[in-house]
């Protein structure tokens, strides 16, 4: 038997009352993949992410992380960067990054002291320098621009060396120029740290630029019942690695049409 996939979904469904959000989601994500998740609003992209995060439990099906059943609540093995509110407004940039080390090393006081604090601060400072925030160690998040806040959120998540990094429309609120810089940064960090990333985005171009694989969520069936009885699932799964077959332009056009009908 080969090593289990890093992340494994088998026939997962999420249902609230009689409303089915996701169904028949089966998937295996390999170590080192950069998976982009796209789909129209309400197609269950965020639910999919919350499932991996452990913020929500599947109504049916099985989810494994590294061959083990997924813990039913968020933990340090799954890092996350949200579009907003990802950093703590009452902590300086440095303290935001040290936070994870504080929690690991000081269960009771939640705050490292002495030489251990110095070591943690050194590690955090290096990481902050790597994401381009060495000038902002003592600033509060409110004093940082949107792009800098997301850099901080990424550094904060990376210090815990998560097995999988989840990004929930992380660059959605940023200006185009800043977004481009962030694309460069996340790609570099992904390579340097050998990360496995799952990123939800509504930007198809971003999905294909960054990902080694693009998953498209949508309702596969017609809406004759108002879409209630059927949930979304993975309707397209494009591998983008070297040697993968090229994406069929017609399929791509269909997808584009579903994602933003206004611009098609």
């Amino acid at each position: 038997m080969t090593a289990p996939s890093l992340l494994y979904f088998r026939d997962v469904a999420v249902q609230y009352g009689d409303r089915i959000v996701l169904e028949q989601v089966s998937l295996a994500v390999e170590q080192g993949a950069f998976v982009s998740v796209v789909g129209p609003s309400g197609a269950g992209k965020s639910t999919f992410l919350r499932l991996i995060l452990g913020q929500e439990a599947p109504s049916r099906g099985v989810i494994h992380l590294e061959g083990e059943p997924l813990a039913a609540e968020p933990d340090r093995h799954r890092g996350v960067v949200f579009q907003r509110y990802s950093v703590f407004p009452h902590l300086s940039a440095l303290d935001n990054v040290v936070f994870g080390l504080d929690c690991a090393g000081a269960p009771l006081t939640g705050r490292l002291r002495g030489p251990r604090r110095a070591a943690a601060a050194e590690e955090a400072t290096a990481l902050l320098a790597r994401v381009g925030l060495s000038h902002a160690l003592d600033l509060y998040p409110a004093q940082l621009s949107g792009g800098m806040q997301q850099r901080l959120a990424i550094a904060q998540a990376l210090i815990m060396k998560p097995r999988i990094l989840l990004l929930d429309e992380p660059f959605g609120a940023l200006d185009p120029g800043v977004r481009k810089d962030m694309h460069g940064l996340i790609t570099e960090l992904w390579r340097e740290h050998g990360l496995t990333i799952v990123m939800v985005t509504h930007d198809l171009k971003e999905a294909f630029t960054l990902g080694t694989r693009v998953l498209a969520f949508d309702k596969p069936r017609h809406f004759d019942d108002g879409g209630r009885a059927y949930g979304s699932t993975i309707v397209y799964d494009f591998p983008l690695d070297k040697g993968a077959p090229p994406v069929d332009p017609a399929t791509l056009a269909t997808l584009k049409d579903r994602l933003d009908p206004d611009q098609a």
């Binding site: 968020p74 340090r76 950093v87 504080d102 929690c103 904060q156 998540a157």
Partner: peptide, 27 residues
Amino acid sequence: LPSEQIIKAQTLGASTWQVALRVALPQ
């Protein structure tokens, strides 16, 4: 408090006590 913050703290390994002490209390 934004649920994102509470979730984020947990993904950084914070226990209930640490979330209360380091995230909620100061805010």
